[in-house]
Design a protein around this nucleic acid. Structure first.
Lengths: 193, 193, 193, 193
DNA sequence: AATGAATGAGTCTTCATTCAT
DNA sequence: GATGAATGAAGACTCATTCAT
């Protein structure tokens, strides 16, 4: 394995550890030491891969958002209707709770995330949603919903799916049934018959 | 003004100041000194009305939740259909962004709020949603949505509304138009024709 | 009752309250509020009779010491032998534990007491002990003990008595028996046969 | 020097610094910052070796008491008479003023020391004094002093030796002469002829 | 004169970050 | 490169003291 690959491995290791810790703890409640311990490295090592604690959150957020955007773009290319796209996005959120959680946190304490970075990814997400909205309007699926409300609504549905997963014990949830219900709700709301 | 009223005034003053600060800042990012300064009182004064920083958050949360439950109960008594109830709830959230924000924060860092208090109010909210759901099922408005998903969805709509208010500059929003759109989305999603 | 007498009463009230509190608590652990509450007066009232918290301790110490010096001087005039004087002093300490306690505290954290005041009362006590020592040497009761050690020893005996009273539950102590034993110890030690 | 030894060194360094500070200041008057400065380390370093300010006092007390008990036990094994033991203990106290001081403080503000720890060491000391008393009674040295008073007396003598050292400038004291006098006093008091 | 609400200086304690090994 | 001991800035909280009523 090359030098570079090794480095990437350790960085990923720390990032995964941070993701795990941030799942149960606030950014301010999680300590760098804790993240280091979970990753099985020394506290100082963290600072060889990240310039600060903030930076870990930034990269985590960036990574999550990039994967997300990529995924949604793929969906948009293959899907016929936006009903289908929305259905897939909801599935994605239910299957990847931790990803949603990070994104949700970002909205809440955007203070912890570099402002300009937050703004730029906000635009990125708004852009993708604009495209979805245009597609829906063109296909006749969306009739009476403004672009702005469409975007907020979609985010809210994702949040509610996430809240659902967080509030109920995972083992008691029939994931497939929940996915189906949420899809129906979302699509029925958006797409006027 | 009586002694008691004065005391309530100062407590309310601090509570309002805290509410304002917590709007733009995380619990951990907001400092007691900051809250005091915003309220125009000394640091020590805070501790005459609250036992700790946590206590401020608790009371804020409690107050917000109590007002909310009271409001929803009132709505349920007067409204004819749950469509109407839901419409009013959405209006409420759009008009009282800070209230939603506090509630949303509670879900995110429930760690900052006394656990048993959080659990008990979770039950309270679940209970009220159960009643709404039953009402909707009885009236035939809700047909194919399970109670759990109904609750999560409703929370999601509220979040959507909140996200919308947070993401866009208040002065650029046509509040009444936004309300109408969100109501339509919610009711169309929930209430099968 | 005259104005002056009333004033003295309230001052004494506070002083007694402070004495009671300082019995179970350190100077720094006892709060002014606590002393006020015990005395049944407002916190602010304390500052009408004392310039500071320190001042309360000073006066308490002064009062205790003055009473003590007065008492010992009386004893010296009436007693025939210093054995008798010492016996009476020990009785006094066993009967007035709180007084001893204050004095002992003074030695320990002399930092809490105004330095020059402490020095001056130290001299006062040394002076009275010098007189006792001279009396004992003259009467032949003391033969081979230097004046300095005599003073320290006497203080030690008092401390012993106090420690005894502090360490054992008061109700389990046969006060008269304890007095007799301590007297015997002290006199036998000091007064060579 | 090994890692472990280094660590012990720094802990000891802090402990010594604290011992020095507590000599002239009350527990509450001494600040952690002061202890750190005296030890030549940062404030934060203290908390790598001690969990709290209290913990420093506890360890200091524990250490002093352990050394003391060990020393007295050694003396009891080698000494022929308890007169000899007592003499040695007095010498020890005069030579180790700071140790006595810590012990004396413990009696005074036992509130600053963990209660159960205080109780357990009280029993330890009482136990050792019980053995001394039994030895003295068996050898005929102690005739008419009860065990409880014997213990208090011995503690008092130690205190008086300590007070003597504290009250007089060290350089003006003829240590050997003082030791001899205190021994004579103590033994003559306890051991009836 | 009496009060207690208001205050902020002073403390302990935490934790992100640095740096010598 | 990896480490974790050392650090001090920052923050919650206490309490003696003041002062308006």
């Amino acid at each position: 394995m090359s030098k570079n690959a090794e480095q990437d491995d350790k960085k990923t290791l720390i990032l995964n550890s941070a993701e795990y810790i941030f799942q149960s703890k606030d950014y301010h409640q999680a300590t760098v030491e804790e993240i280091a311990k979970k990753a099985g490295v020394g506290k100082g090592t963290i600072y060889q891969y990240f310039s600060s604690k903030q930076d870990i959150l930034q990269e985590l957020y960036q990574k999550g958002k990039d994967e997300y955007i990529k995924r949604v773009n793929e969906l948009m290319e293959t899907a016929e209707t936006i009903a289908e796209v929305i259905g897939e996005i909801i599935s994605f959120h239910i299957d990847n709770v931790s990803c949603s959680r990070i994104m949700l946190r970002s909205v809440m304490h955007s203070g912890d995330i570099n402002h300009s970075q937050f703004e730029s990814s906000k635009h990125e997400i708004e852009h993708i949603m604009e495209i979805m909205w245009q597609k829906g309007v063109k296909s006749g699926e969306i009739k009476d919903i403004s672009q702005e409300v469409f975007a907020s609504y979609l985010i809210g549905i994702m949040m509610s799916a996430m809240v659902h997963m967080v509030m109920h014990k995972p083992q008691l949830i029939d994931t497939e049934k929940v996915k189906a219900e949420f899809k129906q709700l979302a699509i029925r709301g958006l797409c006027a018959k």
